Simulated assay, not measured.
Amino acid sequence: MRELLIADAGPLIALARIDRLWLLPRLFAQTITTEIVWSECFANPSDVEQARLNLALAAGWVERVAVPALPHDWRLGLGETSAISLALAHQAAVLIDERAARRTATRLGLPLIGTVGLLTLAKQRELIPAIREDLYHLAASGYRLSPDLLSNALAFVGEAP
């Protein structure tokens, strides 16, 4: 089990949408998000997503922390900047999907994982039986997943597209 994961809004919302937030404590000892990211999660969630996010917080699957200052100007959104800043401060892995933010995290040497990577890891560890339905549900709901990413992830875990 990996120790610490810093989460951005996009993946938290995606995991809430497919009811997979419960995977976080099974894959990571601790998942933290910033107050800024948490606020972003509640900008436009459905009632179901909001309930699932609140459950994850109440159950301790996700913890919120304040980030006192954002000393970096990486030309990212406040949420991505706060998540990467916190990950950098702890030398922790960051759960992030946004392309520019992933490039920044990689350039800074941070381990990163995206929503699709987290689902494939869960499948490999036999925490979920399949990822196809989750990925297609996310794509159908407007979550941006490239066709190549979908087919590569499915091939990686041995599921036909």
Rank of each mutant, 00 (worst) to 15 (best):
M1V: 14
E3G: 10
L4H: 07
A7K: 06
D8E: 12
A9H: 07
A9L: 09
G10A: 15
G10P: 09
P11T: 05
L12T: 06
A14V: 08
R17I: 02
I18Y: 06
D19Q: 13
D19K: 15
W22M: 10
W22F: 10
L23C: 02
R26N: 13
L27H: 10
L27G: 03
A29R: 11
A29T: 05
Q30T: 09
T31D: 12
I32F: 05
I32Y: 09
T33D: 00
T34P: 01
T34N: 03
E35I: 04
I36V: 13
V37A: 02
S39V: 05
S39A: 15
C41D: 11
A43I: 14
S46K: 04
V48N: 12
A51N: 07
A51T: 15
N54F: 14
A56M: 04
L57C: 04
A59H: 05
W61K: 03
R64N: 13
V65M: 14
V65H: 10
V65I: 06
A66G: 05
A66R: 01
P68G: 07
A69D: 11
A69R: 03
A69V: 13
A69E: 05
L70F: 02
L70R: 01
D73C: 04
D73V: 04
W74L: 08
R75P: 01
R75Q: 09
L76D: 03
G77A: 12
L78H: 07
E80R: 00
T81N: 00
T81K: 01
S82Q: 02
S85I: 03
L86F: 12
L86I: 04
A87E: 01
A92Y: 03
V94W: 03
L95Q: 14
E98A: 08
R99L: 09
R102Q: 10
R102A: 11
T104F: 01
A105G: 01
T106F: 13
T106L: 15
R107H: 15
G109H: 12
G109K: 08
L110H: 14
P111E: 15
L112Y: 11
T115R: 08
V116R: 00
L118Q: 12
L119Y: 01
L119E: 01
T120L: 11
L121C: 10
A122Y: 02
A122D: 04
K123H: 08
Q124C: 09
R125L: 13
I128E: 08
P129M: 09
I131C: 11
R132V: 02
R132H: 11
D134S: 15
L135V: 12
L135H: 09
Y136T: 01
Y136I: 05
L138C: 06
G142S: 03
G142H: 00
S146D: 13
P147W: 15
P147A: 15
D148N: 13
D148K: 09
S151G: 07
L154W: 11
V157D: 07
G158F: 07
P161A: 14
